[in-house]
């Protein structure tokens, strides 16, 4: 279900966030050295640092199903690679982790495609036995998200809706939209930012209302 953080748009003011410096990255070399030496603290630090990010990436790409197993598998692969001396540039640790995550995702998708291909024949002969419907909670959340978007669209001019349609549905570039609709980049960003802000406000109110209802039960 939605929570208020998911609607807290950082760029709601309309100003583009600058490429600010993030907090200091961990010293990958030190962690790699400790992991390769079999130091348990090294493994603990490694897991603590990228565990959340890897979980987030799997969750975004593949959903919640078998999430912890996937994160664990990925961790094992990375740790073994370090211990086997396969990671020659410790400062490139995150690049390596990203590659492993991508491979895992690709393998999972390939497996799903293969399963669907073989299971489809069986399903064709036995209709109605399997229930592959989506998670009801997820379906509800998606419906609410679309409803908020509909309300946002109702409150903005047609021209703004056309801009959003071109960007999010027709997948036109910012340059193309600005050129064809005679907009400056700032006007384009500001319009999009206002829509996001409105979406965020409505979403927060919705999440708050749901929270109160659930709390009252």
């Amino acid at each position: 279900m939605p929570n208020q953080d998911e609607f807290d748009f950082a760029d709601s003011s309309g100003e583009e966030e600058s490429a600010a410096e993030a907090p200091l990255s961990p010293e990958w070399g030190d962690i790699v050295t400790r992991v390769s030496a079999g130091d348990p603290t090294g493994l603990g630090d490694l897991y603590a640092i990228f565990g959340k990010g890897v979980r987030w990436m799997f969750m975004r790409q593949l959903g919640a199903e078998e999430l912890e197993d996937r994160v664990h598998d990925c961790f094992i692969i990375v740790a073994q690679a370090i211990q086997n001396g396969e990671l020659r540039e410790p400062e490139r640790l995150m690049g390596y982790v990203r590659t492993i995550v991508k491979r895992q995702i690709a393998a999972h998708i390939e497996g799903m495609v293969h399963r669907r291909r073989t299971e489809a024949d069986f399903e064709d002969t036995m209709p109605g036995l399997s229930d592959f419907s989506d998670d009801p909670e997820q379906v509800l959340w998606e419906q609410q998200r679309a409803e908020i978007a509909r309300r946002v669209l109702k409150g903005i001019p047609k021209r703004d809706r056309e801009i959003l349609r071109r960007f999010y549905v027709d997948e036109q570039s910012q340059d193309q939209i600005c050129s064809e609709m005679n907009l400056s980049y700032n006007q384009f960003r500001l319009m999009k930012s206002r829509a996001k802000k409105r979406f965020g406000e409505m979403g927060k109110r919705l999440a708050l209302g749901i929270g109160r209802r659930l709390g009252g039960k």
Binding site: A146, A149, L164, R165, Y168, A195, F199
Partner: peptide, 14 residues
């Protein structure tokens, strides 16, 4: 995540 929710919601509504 916020960007994704917004984009998906907008796409569906549009």
């Amino acid at each position: 995540d916020q960007m994704r929710h917004f984009a998906l919601g907008m796409r569906e509504a549009l």
